[in-house]
Write a protein that binds this DNA or RNA. Structure first.
Lengths: 194, 194
DNA sequence: CCTACCGATCGGTAGG
DNA sequence: CCTACCGATCGGTAGG
């Protein structure tokens, strides 16, 4: 990737997250970069290419950070805590990309949208498998793991709406508090059935 | 409100939620209603009026449903469960308005945005006070109630992204499962300090 | 509710 | 032949 393309993506991320994809014009983007609108097309084929690049990089970043945990030998409760903290870290370190990801992925054309959805599903499966491991090993009580995976991801994802770096708690600290609460809610009662 | 204006709002809700506010043109809206673009302006002053009407009605609906709980004499844990179920119910019954609410409120002009934010803050305060009541009465262990209010609302809000009426669980059932888990995580250990 | 417009701007492409 | 861009303009559409 050329430095110029990297600059274009960074400017797109800033504008798409602040104004939204559809209200950002190629003119806005060109002005932010100090060049002419038409010149952008030496680097990209379309505005949608930019959206896809941002959203796809976001999906990859989430997977890159969480995948190693799938093979971790941490106990499931600590693996869940680590997963939520890492997830929150990715959201916080990529607040603008996360905003674009959650708001604008629907506007990709069909094939690209399907590819992003496949990555989201794979990601959710990693969380779900941590919960299943927890049930199987008796750390967590039996429950609807698909639904609690949704709850874990709700907590992590919604941070994009309210987390601000200048706040008093870092994202990982928030995630740690969330994780303690969720783990306690999922834990099997001591001396319960095997 | 005239019937025509109600029709315009309903069509706007459908289009804004599906295509986004900025990618919906007044032409799109006119076609959906079977009239000319310019004719819409006999009923509204601007496109933004439609956005504000949708978002403000959404905020009012959330408050209308949750406010009675603030004065309820249910124990705090059951009040929290009821709050989350009602919240989820509003999201599910108004999926399109909720999508517009969460994605597009930022694009309102300053005064209107401030009014919506004030309603959001008031709403969050109701949830926070339920949690504070729980701590005060010893039902919940001492904790950061502002943060757990965020977690409760994360669970309820994120439903707009994945809940679909044709799914196997109703929104209130999902919320009930969420509530059980969160309440268990918040509960004070039996025989703990007074 | 319609026709006919306004100033401006949309995403994308032309030849050089 | 490449890259990185230029000034100008394409056919259409924006909110009002």
């Amino acid at each position: 990737m050329s430095q110029r393309l990297a600059d274009i993506l960074e400017a797109s991320e800033a504008l798409f997250s602040e104004k939204g994809y559809h209200d950002t014009s190629m003119q806005d983007l060109a002005e932010a970069l100090g060049l002419q609108r038409g010149s952008l097309y030496a680097h990209i084929r379309s505005k949608e290419d930019l959206l896809y690049a941002i959203v796809d990089r976001g999906a990859d970043e989430f997977l890159r950070v969480l995948r190693p945990l799938a093979a971790s030998d941490l106990p499931p409760d600590e693996r869940l805590r680590e997963a939520l903290c890492r997830h929150a870290g990715v959201v916080a370190q990529n607040l603008r990309a996360a905003t674009v990801f959650f708001h604008e992925w629907r506007f990709l054309e069909d094939k690209r949208r399907a590819r992003i959805l496949a990555k989201r599903d794979a990601y959710e499966d990693i969380v779900k498998r941590i919960l299943e491991d927890g049930v199987r090993t008796g750390v967590f009580r039996p429950h609807d793991t698909a639904l609690s995976a949704k709850l874990v991801l709700s907590a992590g994802n919604w941070l994009y709406q309210w987390y601000r770096p200048e706040g008093s708690l870092r994202a990982e600290e928030i995630a740690d508090v969330y994780a303690s609460l969720l783990i306690e809610g999922l834990r099997a009662p001591e001396g319960g059935a095997p």
